Simulated assay, not measured.
Amino acid sequence: MEIELNDSKHTRNSWMERFETYLPEVVYGSIDGIVTTFAVVAGAAGAELQINIILILGMANLFADGLSMSIGSYLSNKSERDNYQKHLHIEEWEIENMPDDERKEIEMIYRQKGFEGKELEMVVNRITSNKKVWLDTMMKDELGLSEQKKSPLKAGLSTLVAFITAGAIPLAAYILAYAGKYQIDPFILSSLVTVFAFILIGYIKTYVTQIGLLRSILETLLLGAAAAMAAYFLGDYLEKLLV
């Protein structure tokens, strides 16, 4: 029974570690999704467009921007991984073919960190006696590169799912209004649920940015409010100008 509990605990920890790895993509995908979609809703409301038009614009924006952002996330993570692998192969070749020069670089790195004499020699010998440690040291301390642990595909998918999920929240009120479920002004309802969503996203964002909870929530709310107000008044102005 104890083994089963340990296995269960290990499974949960493993799942949480995988989730935390892609938490930045989830958070920033959610913020981008809800901000851009609510801006579309606010602009359309300012222009006093019909509900079906708002839904068409919102849905089109939701999926087009979601795909664009997820592709950008995929390419960014893939480029970072490819860049690391390229320099890793270069360092491997240099260690194999120019070990003395690479050893001198290790000496220089650790001398700059304050190591001297026998202490420096001991550290250099220990590092250069293990090829993996030697490579890791060159990559981190000489080039400032760390191995990319994220899967570019999973990073892109995490961004897409978060963008569409959060971005659909401002549209939910209009879907209900279109179906005739509620008589309340859909823009007011959309604004209320979006505020609650911003608060939740701001709370989750603290685990990525490590800043205070109140500051994180206020930043997220102000960002969304600024985008929505600009879109609303622009929509209102253009409606009066063009119609």
Rank of each mutant, 00 (worst) to 15 (best):
T137G: 02
R103E: 13
M98G: 07
A47Y: 01
E107H: 02
K113C: 00
Y203H: 13
V41Y: 03
A168I: 15
L120I: 03
M229H: 01
S216K: 12
H89N: 03
L192V: 15
W15K: 10
L160R: 08
A166D: 07
L143T: 07
V243A: 15
K78D: 01
S151N: 10
S70Y: 03
T209G: 10
K132W: 03
S129F: 01
T37D: 02
L145P: 11
Q112T: 05
R111Q: 14
E239A: 15
I34D: 09
K181F: 13
D82P: 01
I106A: 06
F187H: 06
T206L: 14
A179N: 05
T165A: 15
I56E: 01
G224H: 00
G180Q: 11
I127P: 04
T36S: 14
A168L: 15
L157S: 01
D7Q: 10
Y110F: 15
Q112I: 04
Q112P: 01
A162D: 14
M138P: 01
P24W: 15
T165L: 12
D136Q: 14
A64N: 08
E119A: 08
V195T: 08
S68F: 03
A64G: 07
L160S: 13
I34Y: 09
V124D: 09
A228Y: 01
V26L: 10
L221W: 10
